[in-house]
Design a protein around this nucleic acid. Structure first.
Lengths: 351, 351
DNA sequence: CTGAAAGCGCTTACAG
DNA sequence: CTGAAAGCGCTTACAG
């Protein structure tokens, strides 16, 4: 055991003394920079090893301005696809020897501001931000102003000169409704938690999250193309909690002209959607067809298996990290495409 | 737009000059320490605000030895319960104004060693480690040796004087098999990915992960109590991949005296278990009863809903972080209990 | 209450 | 190739 008194860790000066060289020479050997004699280097490294030396990153950061860490600010992490994207970021960071500094914003701009201040103070070498609100961006501009590379995650922010990593939601969404139209569906409901319970959606309306806007507009495009009025009255943006989401689905199904197909903006909403549909005893897809965004493994495990729109989360996460660590590296921003995966939960409309 | 040339951010010295005070006075006002005149403080803060001053955390760290960050080293993060625990840690850290420094080990001790070195170099104020292997601990001892508070996540490591945050798996596990015994089950199979495909399990065997050992031994206790030989031949420790897990379940079901109940050590294993059972056309629970560890939301959504053993991941994560940030704070280590949730996937044994 | 100065542990020109 | 010295941006005794 012998945890004893925590002894002060050895510094480069200690190593230098033991090796009988100057501090400058020691750190040159240790850091692998500058010119240095091979034999001297060996001696220094031996001394470092003997003492169990490890450089103090804070001191290095102060000199170089680089912290050796990648900052990530996320709105929420309980969405089960997040770990996959996060894993991509972490892996990319590890390959460059960087650690990941994480701070959550909990969907609040005020928290996001604090988180960014915190990470910027820690001199992160790059920052990935999943912005809470596209309309509030001053604090984001500060990031690029101080010269820290910024990458936006899945949400475009107008007026901000930063690359956005996102999958193209429009095309896959259109593909889904085109398929539903073919199957005779005209009344298609869409629910996303944007915490705007009152809002009546109208086409082209500016939504706080670009990705949601892309989804809705992508879903409605085939209607317009086919000369059919899109069911804008079946769009709901409830609060983030289960009850509110359930209420939204019930209100859709209780309406005068209820939907024959329901789409959930993410898997957490889909769970509630399934609960509601089952609690009402509706047959799937006999009485109502279902689909959700994000291809979680359980989508295959429920009965019938759920139709989903998938995106390459891991690759996107990796790409975001690489771009944040090395902004000059990519001349053109890679594009990621979402993909419709049809499963048993989608079928012909009733009647 | 106007990203222009990234101007060097203002320092405390700049603020001091603008406010017409010394550097020491300025930092005292800014940092809120030491004695200081209210009016002077106001002037300094105004100057700081005007310049957009933010302290350089690296410099602060060098002086104080505290980095204002909590380190977390995890074996893997793709287990879907991880975000919940992580959220607890992040929330606790945020309450103390700390950021979270994350590094993954990918289940490799060598990577774990690197990750710990990286985070220790960054002077984390506390460290939570989900150890990859209980038998390899020197690098963990170094953590406490340098005086950094260490908290172990869900895995006890012998010879290490550090608190362990874990739920008691034995009791809930025993409760599960007791129930299964009542229902007439004698042949109960258990699969966990420990990457020891050859190993034949025997009671009391030292496993690389304490939590798995607790689960198995907890499951088998009621057998011994009832004077029934535990089905040690139905324990499998395949590699972490889907195919290996599927092969393990097939091998159990193909055996001469196959199990009537199957238990998965986590939800990812359970997905494959479900696939295998369904692909073989076995009725649940008519021909085989199923259960898994971790109460993921989809467990309720499959048909029949899965019996699970749940643990308070969020609270455990929060507690781990609090303990790592303030080791003196808790006089006694809180205990967390796992809980059996019986659902339709468990029924009477056939015959 | 305030200031001058030393120091935290490195890196980086600048001489030699 | 190596060393002495200054400096990164703070904090912290020590005087006053």
């Amino acid at each position: 055991m012998a945890s004893s008194v925590p002894t002060k860790p050895p510094t480069a000066a200690d190593v230098a003394t033991l090796a009988g060289v100057s501090k400058a020479t020691a750190t040159r050997a240790l850091g692998g920079y500058g010119r240095i004699n091979e034999e001297t280097k060996r001696r220094v490294l031996a001394a470092a090893n003997q003492l169990g030396y490890h450089p103090n990153a804070a001191a290095q950061t102060m000199n170089t301005g680089r912290s050796g860490s990648l900052g990530i600010v996320a709105r929420g992490i309980t969405n089960p696809v997040w770990p996959v994207a996060f894993q991509g970021m972490v892996d990319a960071a590890r390959l460059q020897g960087l650690a990941v500094l994480f701070a959550g914003s909990g969907f609040e701009v005020s928290e996001e501001r604090k988180a960014i201040r915190l990470l910027l103070g820690k001199q992160v070498d790059g920052l990935i931000v999943s912005a809470a609100d596209r309309r509030d961006v001053e604090h984001l501009q500060r990031i690029t102003a101080v010269g820290t590379p910024l990458v936006l995650w899945e949400r475009r922010v107008p007026g901000l000169d930063a690359p956005v990593i996102e999958a193209d939601m429009r095309q896959a969404s259109s593909e889904l409704t085109r398929r539903l139209l073919d199957l005779g569906h005209r009344r298609i409901g869409f629910v996303s938690s944007l915490a705007m319970p009152q809002a009546a959606y109208s086409i082209g309306a500016e939504l706080p999250a670009s990705i949601i806007q892309d989804k809705v507009e992508g879903l409605f495009t085939p209607f317009s193309e086919a000369g059919i009025a899109p069911p804008v009255d079946l769009v709901r943006f409830p609060e983030r909690d289960r009850d509110a989401i359930a209420a939204a689905y019930h209100s859709l199904l209780d309406g005068p002209n209820p939907p024959t197909a329901l789409i959930a903006s993410d898997s957490q909403i889909a769970e509630t959607m399934l609960d509601v549909v089952r609690s009402r005893g509706l047959r799937i897809p006999g009485e109502v067809s279902l689909a959700m965004y994000d291809d979680l493994s359980w989508a295959r495990l429920v009965d019938p298996p759920l139709t989903v729109i998938a995106q390459p989360d891991y690759d996107m996460g990796k790409c975001a990290a690489e771009l944040a660590m090395n902004p000059a590296g990519a001349s053109t921003l890679p594009s990621f495409s979402a993909r419709l995966i049809l499963r048993g939960s989608v079928g012909r409309a009733q009647d």
